[in-house]
Simulated scan of single mutants.
Amino acid sequence: MKLDQAQRRILALLQKDSSISTQNLAEKVGLSPSPCWRRVRELEEAGLIRGYVALLDREKLGLGTCVWVRVKLTKHSSEVLDRFEAVVKSCNEVVECYELLGETDCLLKLYLPNLEAFSSFMHNFLLKIPEVDITHSSVALREIKNETALPL
């Protein structure tokens, strides 16, 4: 779907505040409310808007430790990857997981209360997955940038 300027502006504004009223959105985009609402619906139906969420403060929720874990699997087969994916998708601590090219097969991003929780995660969950061969972990010292808005 090729986006026009109004659609790009709508998406940019919704990424910053998805709770904005249709009236306010229309005013900022330069449309009347009905056409603006229709454009938002078109963007939803086209799958460009996947949903609406509330962004939470992980620090205030006691999830101050961010850890990246690189995982090498025991072998490269669709069955091994499918089993690993299914287990990882069921784990709440894993907030992101990517399959990679190169020496590392998957990259996990975790939010945890502290390093003790990370140790527990490793020993009681990740290292018990039979498909996991080698792991390398990095603990974030501080968050420099974390944006949810995509560049338009």
Results as ranks from 00 to 15, higher is better:
G47F: 00
R9M: 11
E59N: 07
K109D: 06
I134R: 14
A117N: 10
R38D: 05
E99M: 06
E116A: 11
L43I: 02
G102R: 09
K2I: 13
D4C: 06
F121C: 07
T65V: 15
L11T: 00
S119D: 00
L112P: 04
K75T: 14
R9D: 11
M122W: 01
T135Q: 00
K60N: 10
L14N: 08
L115V: 07
A86N: 14
L61I: 02
R142Y: 02
I129D: 00
Y111S: 12
K128P: 03
S78Y: 11
M122P: 02
Y111D: 08
Y52K: 08
E143Y: 00
P33N: 06
P35E: 08
R70K: 14
Y98I: 02
Q23R: 14
E85Q: 13
S120V: 08
V132P: 00
A26D: 12
F121N: 07
Q23E: 13
A54V: 08
E93G: 11
D82E: 15
L11G: 01
L3C: 09
Y98L: 02
E79G: 15
R50S: 11
R50F: 05
V95N: 07
L107W: 04
L43W: 00
Y52W: 09
E85F: 09
Q7E: 02
K2F: 12
M122I: 07
K28S: 11
L110W: 13
L81E: 15
S119K: 00
P35D: 09
E143M: 01
G51K: 15
L48V: 02
K2L: 08
V80R: 10
Q7A: 05
E59K: 12
C91L: 15
L61S: 04
F121H: 07
T104D: 01
L55T: 08
D133S: 02
E147P: 01
R142G: 03
R70M: 15
N114F: 06
S138F: 15
I144T: 08
H136D: 04
G47Y: 00
E85V: 13
L43G: 03
T74W: 10
Y98E: 02
D4T: 10
L63T: 12
S137G: 07
E131G: 00
K75F: 13
L101Y: 11
C36V: 03
V94N: 03
E96L: 12
R142F: 05
E59R: 10
L31Y: 10
A140E: 05
I134S: 12
H76G: 15
G30V: 07
K16L: 07
